[in-house]
Design a protein around this nucleic acid. Structure first.
Lengths: 221, 221
DNA sequence: CCAAAAGTGTTTGCTCTACACCCATGG
DNA sequence: CCATGGGTGTAGAGCAAACACTTTTGG
């Protein structure tokens, strides 16, 4: 059906989490050429019998042993010379994972080591992966500003302070507590539960839960 | 380098223009199976020595004989069974063209006919192309709301009424003339020229020109 | 002088920002 | 009773929406 040579297709997944009061990205150290021993975004070839999204989920689960709490396609990078091995088109995905769920990272075949890096202090990367990460961070901020993805990083019941902290980490700035709470409450997307947090050595915060569907478009901040 | 069978990769281009006071999309009638005689979004295989964007430009120029005034990647569709011929991943692009430039559409190989359809009255389409168009129209509206792409559809010098008309067509609703003008002028993205439009049988409008870079993010409406 | 589109301001309500103190709990 | 984070209101500025009449030109 096709008269031309085919390019190869890979998926790469930018996996974000919030850990130690910082925004983290999962990177892997390559065990094979090209770019052996350099850090890169995890990814791999798309198999003929799986969809792009299935491929992204598979790669992510191979690396972290858990399912993504949020996953969406980011962009497709298809410059002719982006991979020295030949023509490789990569479909980049963007994932969010709750850090509590992650126990241990696994080095898969071709990978020496997997590690969380601060999104604000990244090493030099293989291929055009710096461009991909730049794009991913922009998208991340857009998503948090205009949609409700944040709730995919929170437990079912959470305090308003936990919510605000995530925004402060991602936007790398402080928000006024009163204004933030007023704004969030006015959106009518969360509701009080009957519980308060236990085991805190100060006034126990009210816990809320999210009322809507994650990812929905709502201007948050 | 790869142990698996490769998928094929195509680009499909959703080409928009404003013509006859309506938002139009270019479709082609397929001359070959599968979906012979059905309407589809123009597209074709990505060649091994061209980037995705180059492929999109080539396909677009083959169809319309002109260069796009605006082009960006939309989304990559990669479900396993979206093409009955086998595994085909398509990278969809989104293009805007000034309608004055287009003289005649060309039917290329494999295509019986090319035709502009109203975006609000589309025929049944081949493959998953209805999903692609739905996605494209959403993106189009987003782009017009939050960026300055509109200027890629206007001549260098234009009146505020022409500008407003494009918004009314795309959002399929009327805007208040005074508020619209106030908003646009307050953005500080256009400036008066010394000219007024000629050959109109009424008060000749002031012509403006755009000061910035097309596509820049600015909340327009 | 008529038809057609251009051009122009004000009021009202809402939303965003800035800002500081008291409260509840555990140790 | 102290340390820690939780929880709350108000005033002022800026932005968005509603709304109608006069001006300029060609025919």
């Amino acid at each position: 059906m096709e008269r031309y040579e085919k390019p190869s297709v890979t998926v790469d997944i930018v996996i974000f989490t919030i850990k130690d009061n910082d925004l983290k990205i999962l990177l892997v150290k390559r065990g094979i050429e090209p770019f052996k021993n350099m850090w890169a975004i995890p990814g791999g070839f798309v198999r003929i019998e799986e969809s792009l999204e299935e491929a992204a989920k598979r790669e992510l689960e191979e690396e972290t042993s858990v399912r993504a709490d949020y996953l969406e396609q980011l962009y497709t990078f298809g410059e002719v010379n982006r991979d020295p091995r030949g023509r490789v088109i990569t479909v980049a995905y963007f994932a969010l994972i709750k850090s509590e769920k992650i126990s241990k990272l696994k080095a898969t075949a071709d990978v020496i080591e997997a590690k969380w890096f601060s999104a604000f202090k990244l090493p030099k990367l293989a291929f055009d992966h710096e461009k991909i990460l730049e794009y991913a961070i922009k998208r991340l901020r857009w998503k948090f500003e205009y949609t409700t993805v944040v709730f995919s990083l929170l437990p079912e019941k959470f305090s308003l302070t936990e919510l605000q902290k995530i925004y402060e980490i991602i936007f790398d700035k402080k928000f006024d507590k009163r204004n933030f709470r007023k704004k969030i409450l006015s959106l009518n997307i969360i509701e009080k539960t009957k519980e308060r947090q236990k085991n805190v050595s100060n006034r126990p915060p009210q816990l809320y839960k999210f009322k809507k569907k994650i990812g929905e478009i709502v201007e948050i901040i």
